[in-house]
Design a protein around this nucleic acid. Structure first.
Length: 489
DNA sequence: GCCCTAATAT
DNA sequence: CATATTAGGG
């Protein structure tokens, strides 16, 4: 039976109830294995011959999820045939002997694992992973184009994301429980699943992710991204190291767990690095919005965090991001090399770092919450200030012009030039100039004139109680309102 | 304890 | 590389 990710998700106490086909002519061995498996909650059907096994499979009533078949020198041909005809069924081969060539052939024929007898309980216990693996990796023939850059194709990303989302979902379900019970809560079972990142989405308290992760993510990496901009849920990817205890004879588990190196001891708080937040465009956008809503001067991590209202995000995350954000602004702002604007001659005040003329004040109640508000610095070319934003999550902090609007939530024109994002600012700008009518907003070609701007600026200042210099956005907003510039909307 | 920055680790 | 973490100072 081909198990889908969804099946697993809905599978309450997976892997309990997993149906195992056991093919072993040695009755003693068979019963032994069977009873072990049953203890573990598997549902086992034992067969003494391929024929029986095959007919049971084709019968389809059993819906096996995984098979364990014994291979010997004297029955291997039959087993090969069996393997060939059961490609869909994850099949584990077992044997008393280590005959590499036989095993190799089995593997070549699709066997998922070779286990030497006597079968280790751990191995047996974890046979479910083949089912899971299949479930989560099945699908569109071949997603295996590893050559593609990770961020290159959004389609494939998405695809992968969905898959992994399932996985994580699965994680969460189980982990929630474990956390509740937590004193002895181990998570060995999940440790196996994958080492890749997975995306997940969940709704819950903002505490949830954090505590959960803290508790059970020993060395995992979780990437957090916003799923949609309206929802506050996150997608997280979990990369789990292989559990140290289930692969006793494998070498790849070494060198993890620097801190608490008791192989089977519960993760202690020492050895874990925080989850890693993936600041995707969506997330960053939210961040920027929060910052601007607060006003740059009041934008402190805790408030930003609050405003962003993204679960799973911690103050530290925000803090870190904020640090970077500020740095970026600071460096881009003043006399940074090469940033010339078409209309800004040398003494250009637009490039000056703003002076804070007003005491900080926080007011965001006067405007609708989804807008971006006057924050602070007087209007330099907006593009200069914020990270460029690329529609993929591959955004940069470079001051490219034109693309970033989205970054701070400006209802601006989508860049209309197909060539935009990677061009240098220079190119882009000069480019824009030629078609000023078409791209009014982001180029300053339609520069309305100082008086008008000033007026708009003033209004922007006065609007929110006149306490802070307007942000770029507010100016733009005002300009927009006044029909200045030919902003499309 | 929170915030900020810079430096450093992963 | 992007983030997290840490350290030192307010």
């Amino acid at each position: 039976m081909v198990c889908t990710a969804n099946d697993l998700l809905g599978w309450k106490d997976f892997p309990k109830g997993l149906r195992v086909l056991l093919l072993d002519e040695d009755i003693n061995s068979a019963t032994e294995i069977r009873s072990k498996l049953e203890e573990m909650g598997y549902v086992v059907s034992t067969f003494g011959s391929e024929k029986d096994a095959l007919s049971a499979i084709s019968d389809n009533s059993k819906g096996f999820h995984v098979a364990i078949i014994e291979v010997r020198a004297d029955n291997k041909d039959g087993r090969f045939k069996f393997l060939e005809s059961t490609k869909d069924l994850p099949t584990i081969i077992t044997s008393d002997v280590n005959c590499i060539s036989t095993m190799m052939k089995c593997i070549a024929l699709g066997a998922v694992e070779f286990l030497k007898k006597p079968l280790s309980e751990d191995r047996l216990r974890n046979i479910w992973q083949h089912v899971a693996h299949k479930a989560f990796n099945a699908g569109p023939e071949d997603r295996s184009e590893p050559l593609k850059s990770e961020k290159a194709s959004s389609a494939s990303d998405l695809d992968i994301c969905l898959k992994k989302e399932d996985i994580k979902e699965y994680f969460n379900q189980n982990q929630e429980h474990n956390e509740e019970v937590s004193v002895e809560g181990h998570h060995e079972d999940q440790d196996h699943i994958l080492t890749e990142k997975a995306c997940v989405d969940h709704d819950g308290e903002s505490k949830f992710v954090e505590t959960t992760c803290d508790d059970l993510v020993v060395d995992t990496t979780i990437t957090v991204t916003i799923e949609t901009d309206t929802s506050k849920s996150l997608e997280e990817g979990i990369g789990k190291p292989l559990s140290n205890e289930c692969c006793p004879d494998h070498t790849n588990t070494m060198k993890r767990n620097e801190g608490s190196n008791h192989p089977s001891s519960r993760p202690t708080k020492s050895s874990r690095r925080k989850i890693k937040v993936d600041w995707t465009s969506e997330l960053h956008k939210k961040f920027v919005q929060a910052v601007e809503q607060l006003g740059v001067d009041q934008a402190i991590p805790s408030r930003i965090l609050e405003l962003m209202n993204v679960e799973g995000l911690t103050r530290h995350n925000v803090s870190s991001h904020l640090q970077k954000y500020r740095l970026q602004r600071r460096h881009i702002l003043p006399k940074e090399s090469g940033w010339k604007w078409p209309h800004s001659t040398p003494g250009n005040h637009y490039l000056q770092k703003p002076i804070m003329a007003y005491p900080p004040y926080h007011s965001n109640h006067t405007l609708p919450p989804t807008r971006v508000y006057p924050a602070w610095p007087p209007p330099p070319p907006p593009q200069m200030y914020y990270p460029a934003w690329q529609s993929s999550d591959n955004w940069m902090w470079h001051p490219y012009s034109g693309v970033q609007a989205e970054a701070w939530g400006c209802p601006t024109v989508p860049p209309q030039r197909t060539s935009f994002p990677q061009n240098t600012a220079q190119i882009h700008i000069s480019d824009s100039r030629q078609s000023s009518q078409a791209i009014p907003m982001n180029s300053f070609d339609n520069y309305p004139g100082d008086e008008v701007i000033d007026k708009a600026v003033k209004e922007a200042i006065n609007k929110p109680l006149g306490l802070r210099p307007p942000s770029t956005e507010s100016v733009i907003y005002e300009l927009l309102k006044q029909g200045i510039s030919t902003f499309p909307h």
